[in-house]
Amino acid sequence: MIQEILAFEFMRNAFLAALLSSVACGIIGTYVVVKKIGFISGGIAHTAFGGIGLGYYLGINPLFGVIPFSLAAALAIGLLSKKAKVAEDSAIGTFWAVGMAVGVICIGLKPGYAPDLFSYLFGNILTVPTFDLWMIMLLDTLIIAMVWLLSKEFLAISFDEEYAAVSGLNTMALYLLMLCLIALTVVVMMRVVGIVMVIALLTIPAAIARMFSRSLPGMMIQSVVLSALFSICGLWISYMLDIASGATIILVAGFSFMSAHALRHFITFLRGL
């Protein structure tokens, strides 16, 4: 059965993409959850659509449009939410919609039909080219290296930003760097679940892992494992039922999230008896 599936190159690539993207997703998702910046991350993800449109309009690989665009979005949203006298959620909401609007206009300006647009919005893990796999691997390496180097700083700004500032850290720069890593993770995840649903896969594995962890590195490892599990289960189910892979992965993750919470309440209830 498994051999039969893996005999197709596109399936091998799909599984590889699922596994590789889980690494970035689990590590960065942990920060998104403990620092409670899910909405900001969602904003960055949706703004990134402008980069896809731009890349498509310029006739380059959309990856090269989306990487600079999402990094710029991360910096702009980060600065605006902290420095400007604008309510944080209005700032994020504005970017969210403006980014998507830029994407829609760019795609409209380019004559002809944009066939793989849907795959960026909703993910299509079955069409991941080998080049994208290398790109995901490169971004994974970069994310792991940054998080390893800055583990104590990222822990400090996630847990107690004021104390980090008092200790002499440049918390603003670190926060912007963290948002940039989130932007890169969004790029990594884009092929798997698409930018519309990326926020679910970024937060759900980490949110479940938090229930069972007593340290950030532990939570990251659990999130990576859960994320890989959801992606592979979703991929397999979507193959069996011939349904959209990105959406199936999200449904598997969402169902697991609810089950984990129900289980926790059930255990608390049993203990109370």
Partner: peptide, 17 residues
């Protein structure tokens, strides 16, 4: 209160400066 950090890791943060 759900933040995954132990007492020792919290105290280690004091070495940050």
């Amino acid at each position: 209160r759900d933040f995954p950090i132990s007492v020792i890791d919290l105290v280690l943060m004091g070495r940050l400066s």
